[in-house]
Structures are given as C-alpha cells and as structure tokens.
Computed example of a mutant assay.
Amino acid sequence: MDWYIGVLKKYMVFKGRARRKEYWIFILFNMLISLVLSLVDEQFGTFNPEIGIGTLGTIYALFVFLPTLAVTVRRLHDADRTGWWALLGLIPFGVFVLLAMQAFEGTKGENRFGPDPKGDQTKSGTFTV
C-alpha cells in the first residue's frame, strides 16, 4: 500500500525515475480499486454498459489520471527513454507495447534522468526488486 500512496504523493512529479515495483504495485491497486468501484456502480445502478464505466469509476479514473501518467513517465525514464513514449497509449495496441516496455529492468546506475531508484546494490551485497 505504501507504493500506491507514494505514487499519489508524487501527483505531478514527471522528473526522476520509478522502479518496476512502484509502477506495477500502483497499476495493480488501480485495477483492484476500479473493479470494486465497477461492482459498486452496478449495485447502485450507476454503471453505464455502453461506455463500460460508472459514475464512481469515472471519478476515480479522473482522480488517478495524472498520477498514472506521471509514474508511467518516470518508469520510462528508468529505462532511459523519454516520457513522450507514453503517447503510445493513444494508438491502437500501443498500450500493449507500452506495458511491455514497463516490464523490463531499468538502467543500472545513474542515467540522464537521475540516480538509480534502487540505489547501489553492489555495495550492500543485496538485491531488491
């Protein structure tokens, strides 16, 4: 839950880098919360099957839009890619390419977007994901 809250605290932070764990935990919580809100929308009759989302789901989606975009850009930065790659999500099937990009490990050590978010594991002798 700390990873999810941490991303929300960095609401508009597009600079720097984000670990895979930070990105994927945030995405997982988004999916779970969206699922629960869809069920609640169905129970209250506020779910619109034509557009596939209800009132509560829409409010939540608007709330997390910028944090999701920001963590996506920071995750791309971790792989030493510019944040403009996030625009792949706007083209058909581009979101799948974008998700695949997020799955790979980031650049070890410092890159042009900042220091490694994992820190230097070579000194401590431990590896964390």
Rank of each mutant, 00 (worst) to 15 (best):
F14K: 10
S34W: 07
F14C: 14
T58I: 10
A86S: 13
T58K: 10
L39N: 07
W24N: 07
K15Y: 04
L90Y: 00
S34G: 09
S38Q: 09
R17N: 00
K10V: 12
A100L: 12
G83M: 11
L76H: 07
G125R: 07
L28T: 08
P117V: 01
V71S: 15
M31C: 12
F63K: 06
A18K: 00
L37T: 12
V95S: 11
I53C: 00
F29L: 05
D78E: 02
G6L: 05
P115N: 00
L69T: 03
T122P: 06
H77M: 08
K108F: 13
R112S: 12
I59A: 15
L98V: 12
G45N: 02
G106Y: 03
I53Q: 06
N30V: 00
L32G: 15
F44N: 13
P67G: 05
A79S: 15
K10P: 12
N30P: 09
L88M: 01
I91C: 07
F47H: 14
G89R: 08
L88P: 06
V73W: 10
Q43I: 13
A61C: 06
F44Q: 12
S34V: 00
M12W: 09
N48V: 11
A86F: 11
E42P: 09
K21D: 11
M1T: 14
P117Y: 01
G57Y: 10
M101F: 10
H77W: 01
I25K: 06
V13L: 13
E50N: 10
L69V: 02
N30F: 01
T55F: 15
P92Y: 04
Y60G: 04
F127Q: 05
K21H: 05
P67H: 04
G106F: 01
V73E: 04
N30W: 10
P92T: 00
A61P: 14
D2T: 10
T107N: 00
L76T: 08
S124R: 12
F14L: 13
F26A: 03
R74Y: 06
A70H: 02
T128C: 09
K108I: 12
G125I: 08
M101C: 07
N111I: 03
V7D: 00
F104W: 15
W84T: 14
T122R: 13
M12N: 11
P117W: 07
V129T: 09
F47G: 02
T122A: 05
Y4N: 05
G119P: 15
W24S: 11
K15N: 07
L99E: 06
P92Q: 03
E105Y: 14
I91A: 05
L28C: 11
A100E: 06
L28D: 12
F29W: 11
D116C: 09
L28R: 08
G94S: 05
L37M: 14
T58V: 04
E22W: 02
N111C: 00
A61D: 08
R112A: 03
F47R: 07
I5F: 10
T126M: 03
D41K: 02
T58A: 15
G94V: 02
R81F: 08
L90I: 12
R81C: 11
M101W: 12
V129N: 14
T122E: 15
W24I: 09
R81H: 15
L66E: 01
D80A: 09
L8I: 06
F93G: 07
F29D: 01
R17E: 06
F26K: 08
P115I: 04
F96D: 03
G45D: 11
P115W: 09
F93Y: 13
M31L: 15
L69Y: 01
E50C: 08
Y4T: 07
V7W: 01
